[in-house]
Write a protein that binds this DNA or RNA. Structure first.
Length: 203
DNA sequence: CCATCGTGACACTATTTAAT
DNA sequence: ATTAAATAGTGTCACGATGG
């Protein structure tokens, strides 16, 4: 439990009244932004399972945004992944600030209901950070899409450039143009060799 | 070819609830 | 009252895939 997480827990109680959003839209945005959030595909499967335990399609500020599935139920809905893995990805989701743990005294997850059967207080995972951060997540998703596009363009440009240089060196050697083309070719090879296989945009 | 990471099995702890 | 079962969480170790 870091201080940032504590702060997030406090912030979640300050969502604007009346705010509501489609939970699957948030999920899609979070999926797009998963690299920025430091999540993996499995984490998304866990988040998916978690959302599926929330009965309503709309995440609303005035509703009870807490799900309390047991780990076994969660495992079932998350395509049968192992318990340890499930817990790790839950921890990841908490770290990413997408959910907040609401622990009961014994760490179990359950809901206490009043006489009318309405949920009085629930222990489990609080989904309200998702609602709080919808806009932020949407922005991140757009950013990721834009970055991916920019990276593809950059890679295309690089490939074309590389081919041109290669052709120029070959032509120069064949036609005996003056200059130390062998060492230039060696420079070229070492430069190309430094390009990582899975480059980032900045690289 | 080796290092690293993700995953899963297992053991261990903690706490409440149920049973004796 | 004491004990056993249930359940959540964490840590560790081994294994396999993937990347450099």
């Amino acid at each position: 439990m870091t201080l940032a997480l504590v702060r997030r827990q406090i912030e979640t109680s300050e969502i604007k009244p009346g705010k509501a959003t489609d939970k699957w839209k948030v999920f899609r945005d979070a999926s797009e932004a998963r690299e920025l959030l430091g999540l993996q595909d499995r984490s998304l499967a866990v988040l998916d399972a978690l959302l599926s335990f929330y009965p309503d399609n709309e995440l609303r500020q005035d509703a009870q945004l807490i799900v309390f599935p047991s780990n076994t139920q969660l495992t079932l809905r998350a395509h049968g992944i192992a318990g340890a893995t499930l817990r790790r990805h839950l921890a990841l989701l908490v770290d990413a600030g997408l959910i907040v743990r609401k622990d009961s005294a014994n760490g179990k997850r359950y809901a206490r209901k009043d006489k009318a059967g309405a949920i009085d207080s629930a222990f489990g995972f609080d989904l309200s950070p998702l609602l709080l951060r919808v806009d932020e997540l949407a922005m991140m998703a757009q950013q990721v899409v834009a970055d991916r596009f920019a990276l593809r363009r950059a890679k295309e440009n690089l490939t074309i450039c590389r081919r041109d240089v290669r052709k120029l060196i070959s032509a120069a050697i064949e036609e005996g143009a003056s200059g130390d083309w062998e060492s230039i070719e060696a420079m070229y090879i070492s430069l190309v060799g430094r390009i990582p296989r899975a480059p980032t945009l900045s690289a």
